[in-house]
Amino acid sequence: MYHILEEIELDLNFKILFVDDENTLNDTIKSLNNYLIITDREYPNIGHQFVLDDTPVNISKFKEKINIEFLKVKFNSQSEVKVSNYIIDLNSREMSEKKIRLKLTEKEINTIIFLSKSNKPVSVDELQKKVWSYQSDMETHTVETHIYRLRKKILNTFDDNEFIISKKNGYQIN
């Protein structure tokens, strides 16, 4: 099967690697971000497996199935963003630390992600423009109200009063 996949690798959304034993498989997985294991049997305690137990297969359908499986793996792996001590799951809109989870709105996630990408405090005007798409000349306290509520949710759930900090020139992730 490896040689067939190697021949059609250009039609696939991923790189093909050959692994012939379970120890090498475990070592290889540790060095990869995204992977899909195509095998004839299921390995316990190893994720992202596509078990090929129905042979022979139509090669076009096979390419389509493994591309879909790999895209699922890639989508799931890209959905998690680490911000400070927390994991933000973009798909489920949750923020978690250890086993504690907090549901967030899309705007709250966008605010956290935007703040986390900045090395300096972000002004209210910039948040209004970039996260809320408001004009800076509008008189509104939307940003301050959302930040206040978000900080309160984080404090109540994680007992963290220092995640989003206020500076004289804006807000910043600590």
Score class of each variant (00 low, 15 high):
residue 1 M to W: 03
residue 2 Y to Q: 01
residue 2 Y to N: 09
residue 2 Y to V: 08
residue 3 H to Y: 15
residue 6 E to Y: 10
residue 7 E to A: 13
residue 7 E to P: 00
residue 9 E to Q: 13
residue 9 E to N: 12
residue 10 L to M: 05
residue 14 F to Y: 04
residue 14 F to W: 03
residue 14 F to G: 00
residue 15 K to A: 03
residue 16 I to M: 05
residue 16 I to T: 03
residue 20 D to A: 08
residue 21 D to L: 01
residue 24 T to D: 13
residue 24 T to Q: 13
residue 28 T to C: 10
residue 28 T to G: 05
residue 31 S to T: 15
residue 32 L to G: 05
residue 33 N to F: 14
residue 35 Y to W: 10
residue 36 L to T: 02
residue 40 D to M: 08
residue 40 D to T: 10
residue 41 R to T: 08
residue 42 E to S: 09
residue 42 E to R: 10
residue 42 E to M: 14
residue 42 E to Q: 13
residue 44 P to S: 08
residue 44 P to F: 09
residue 46 I to S: 00
residue 48 H to L: 00
residue 48 H to Q: 05
residue 49 Q to A: 03
residue 51 V to Q: 06
residue 53 D to K: 12
residue 54 D to W: 10
residue 54 D to I: 09
residue 55 T to C: 14
residue 55 T to Q: 13
residue 55 T to M: 15
residue 56 P to A: 05
residue 56 P to Y: 04
residue 56 P to C: 04
residue 57 V to E: 02
residue 57 V to H: 06
residue 59 I to W: 01
residue 63 K to Y: 02
residue 63 K to T: 00
residue 66 I to G: 02
residue 68 I to H: 05
residue 69 E to A: 15
residue 69 E to P: 07
residue 70 F to D: 00
residue 71 L to Q: 04
residue 71 L to T: 01
residue 72 K to N: 14
residue 72 K to D: 11
residue 73 V to N: 00
residue 73 V to E: 00
residue 75 F to I: 04
residue 78 Q to D: 12
residue 78 Q to Y: 11
residue 80 E to Y: 09
residue 82 K to I: 14
residue 83 V to T: 03
residue 85 N to K: 09
residue 85 N to V: 01
residue 86 Y to K: 02
residue 87 I to V: 11
residue 87 I to R: 01
residue 88 I to N: 00
residue 91 N to K: 07
residue 92 S to E: 13
residue 93 R to S: 15
residue 94 E to V: 12
residue 96 S to H: 10
residue 100 I to Y: 08
residue 103 K to G: 11
residue 103 K to L: 13
residue 103 K to S: 14
residue 104 L to A: 03
residue 107 K to L: 13
residue 112 I to L: 15
residue 113 I to Y: 06
residue 114 F to M: 04
residue 114 F to H: 07
residue 118 S to R: 07
residue 118 S to L: 01
residue 119 N to D: 15
residue 119 N to V: 07
residue 120 K to L: 14
residue 120 K to P: 01
residue 120 K to C: 03
residue 121 P to I: 07
residue 121 P to Q: 09
residue 123 S to Y: 14
residue 123 S to Q: 12
residue 124 V to Y: 06
residue 124 V to S: 03
residue 126 E to V: 14
residue 127 L to H: 09
residue 130 K to V: 07
residue 135 Q to S: 11
residue 135 Q to P: 00
residue 137 D to T: 12
residue 137 D to H: 15
residue 137 D to E: 15
residue 138 M to R: 13
residue 138 M to Q: 15
residue 140 T to I: 08
residue 142 T to K: 12
residue 144 E to L: 13
residue 144 E to S: 15
residue 145 T to W: 10
residue 146 H to T: 10
residue 147 I to C: 04
residue 147 I to D: 00
residue 149 R to Q: 11
residue 154 I to C: 04
residue 155 L to R: 04
residue 156 N to C: 05
residue 156 N to S: 10
residue 156 N to A: 11
residue 158 F to H: 06
residue 158 F to D: 06
residue 159 D to L: 07
residue 159 D to N: 14
residue 160 D to C: 06
residue 161 N to Q: 13
residue 161 N to W: 13
residue 161 N to L: 12
residue 162 E to C: 05
residue 162 E to I: 08
residue 163 F to D: 00
residue 163 F to A: 01
residue 164 I to M: 05
residue 164 I to A: 02
residue 164 I to R: 03
residue 165 I to H: 02
residue 166 S to A: 14
residue 167 K to T: 06
residue 168 K to T: 08
residue 168 K to R: 15
residue 169 N to Q: 10
residue 171 Y to A: 00
residue 172 Q to W: 09
residue 173 I to Q: 02
residue 174 N to R: 07
